[in-house]
């Protein structure tokens, strides 16, 4: 049985590695299984080190690094597909896939769980942890330093620029404590959704939006490109009417979906909109 042979080979490898000192434990075949962790791993990993990323990372609407991800095996959440990649480290989000993690551990594969970052600062922590796990501390330090530099450069220090609201598919918005909330604040706007007491993944009706009269509407102008039932919200007549008065910032979902280095593109687009 090829699978059993693979398994025993992996387990013997793991046993062998366990005996070695920590510094030598650099994983050679890494799989990441979460869109946001994929984005970090694609930036941190050494060439050839990353052998699998989640299939979502190949979707250019969601993934900034879709072209780089295209060269790597796309993975869905099934143990069998993961095992065929013969990974020595699988990186997943902290609060999901409990069954999958148990099965992977049963197969003696190292599993690293990293938290879901909802702010730039949290993203830095995750990047640090991942860099250590990949044995790429240097790359991690460079990435974080770059992020801090961009953040310093793009943060608005003047008077408040007014209110803004982020609108997503299915009347979704980003309320208090969300990543977009932070990005709006850093860019000098007050988040209308947070003012309305909406939580981080709340929903809002168009009437509320109109009544709140925000100065800036943030939405993914390209959302209608892929057939989706709910993104039509974005093209609603009433919103277009408001758009005549309010400023409009088109922020592609792929820059705002994960906390991390791509968020500065959002801040750049917001900075453009305030001009």
């Amino acid at each position: 049985m090829a699978l059993r042979r693979t398994l025993s080979r992996i387990s013997s490898l793991v046993l062998l590695l366990a005996a070695l000192p920590a510094a030598a434990q650099v994983p050679q075949r890494v799989v990441t299984l979460n869109l946001c962790l994929d984005q970090m791993a694609l930036r941190l990993a050494a060439p050839g080190q990353l052998v699998g990323v989640s299939y979502l990372s190949q979707d250019p609407h969601l993934s900034v690094l879709a072209d780089r991800a295209a060269a790597i095996e796309p993975v869905r959440e099934s143990v069998e597909t993961i095992l065929t990649l013969r990974p020595d480290l699988v990186i997943l989000g902290k609060d999901s896939h409990a069954r999958l993690k148990r099965l992977l551990r049963d197969a003696d594969i190292r599993v690293l769980e990293l938290p879901w970052a909802t702010s730039i600062e949290e993203a830095e922590t995750v990047i640090e942890q991942m860099a250590v796990a990949l044995g790429r501390e240097g790359a991690g330090r460079t990435l974080i330093a770059g992020m801090r530099e961009q953040r310093r450069r793009l943060t608005w220090t003047g008077a408040s620029l007014g209110t803004a609201i982020h609108l997503e598919a299915n009347r979704g918005t980003s309320g208090k404590g969300s990543l977009m909330d932070e990005l709006l604040r850093l860019s000098g706007f007050r988040n209308l959704a947070a003012d309305l007491g909406i939580g981080s993944f709340g929903r809002v009706s168009l009437e509320t939006v109109l009544a709140g009269q925000p100065d800036l509407l943030v939405l993914d102008g390209a959302a209608n490109a892929s057939p989706a039932r709910a993104t039509e919200f974005v093209g609603h007549h009433a919103l277009l009417a408001l758009a005549g008065k309010a400023k409009l910032a088109s922020v592609p979902t792929r820059y705002s979906i994960c906390a991390g280095p791509d968020n500065f593109e959002v801040m750049r687009l917001l900075a453009e909109a305030r001009r």
């Binding site: 598919a169 009347r171 709910a230 609603h236 009433a238």
Partner: peptide, 25 residues
């Protein structure tokens, strides 16, 4: 079969029935 990863969520919302924010079109 849909390429849209959020299809399930949005269709379960839609199938639950709503007339919120429908415009004149």
């Amino acid at each position: 079969l849909s390429p849209n990863p959020f299809a399930y969520q949005e269709i379960s919302l839609w199938l639950a029935g709503s007339i919120v924010d429908r415009d004149l079109r």
